[in-house]
């Protein structure tokens, strides 16, 4: 393996995935630097969601390699990736609806010893101390995403946009180095959109890299200095959002993807 430059965070090489003989992600490679914010766009069916799921570990790779910070994650399941510093959100948010907003965020803490049966039984003091520290941090994160006033409510009461914010707070709770965001603008009312964009940008300013899959070009343009346009399972173009959106081949694949 060649030496990774110190600024390289994510190195995904020749990722491939086919469903029933249909190639959806086709030998796609992708690099991200530390603290970078990268957008991935493309017409429907370009393979964005599959790429996302491959990176998140939700589906296994057919071929290829995913290395985060020198650590090979290729064969690891979703539960191993967050511990390695790779957090994700869901396109349709999946809060634990009957648990409180605060508990939702606290569940995302990594390395809480009281989550094992034996330490919950045998070392209650240690787990209680961890819980207090985690609760304080979870509350700070709820402040950050403006959900503090709802901390005791079951997550079921949250609106679509609030759920996106809750998922962002949950992801941050795990102290990741890279967050994968799956269409954070989808289904969000415009009033909340500004808040979400601002919070993503703040998260990024704290040094957390963000990979964003999004249809909303406004969000992409405001957040991402660099985007990759995907088509037919591989990158078609790469560059600044305002540059790639003018390229003829990019416009063409978008037109092809239009229904009718």
């Amino acid at each position: 393996m060649d030496q990774a430059p110190p600024s390289l965070l994510l190195d995904a090489r020749r990722l491939a995935k086919a469903f029933g003989g249909m190639t959806v992600v086709n030998e796609m490679s992708l690099q991200m630097g530390r603290g970078e914010i990268l957008g991935i766009i493309g017409p429907n069916g370009a393979g964005k969601t599959t790429l996302f799921n491959l990176l998140a570990g939700a589906i296994p790779l057919d071929r290829g390699q995913i290395v985060l910070d020198g650590q090979d994650l290729s064969g690891k399941g979703p539960e191993a990736r967050i511990g390695a510093g790779l957090a994700r959100t869901f396109q349709i948010p999946r809060p634990f609806a009957r648990m409180t907003v605060l508990e939702n965020v606290m569940t995302a803490a990594q390395g809480q010893s009281g989550e094992g049966l034996f330490s919950a039984l045998l070392a209650p003091a240690r787990s209680a101390a961890q819980e207090r520290a985690n609760a304080a941090r979870a509350r700070d994160l709820l402040d950050f995403v403006s959900l503090s006033h709802l901390e005791d409510q079951p997550a079921a009461v949250l609106s679509g946009g609030q759920r996106k914010l809750l998922e962002l707070a949950r992801a941050m709770m795990a102290e990741p180095r890279l967050i994968l965001l799956d269409e954070p603008a989808a289904g969000v009312n415009p009033a909340l959109l500004d808040l979400i964009i601002d919070r993503i940008s703040t998260v990024n300013a704290q040094g957390v890299a963000v990979l964003l899959i999004e249809h909303n070009m406004e969000m992409i343009a405001r957040l991402c200095p660099r985007v990759i346009v995907m088509a037919a399972g591989k990158p078609l173009a790469e560059g600044r959002p305002e540059d790639v959106s003018r390229r003829a081949d990019v416009i063409e694949v978008y037109l092809e993807g239009m229904p009718g």
């Binding site: 939700a58 539960e79 869901f90 809060p95 990594q110 989550e115």
Partner: peptide
Amino acid sequence: VAAQALGK
């Protein structure tokens, strides 16, 4: 699924 994504 969500719990798994949070490392559980």
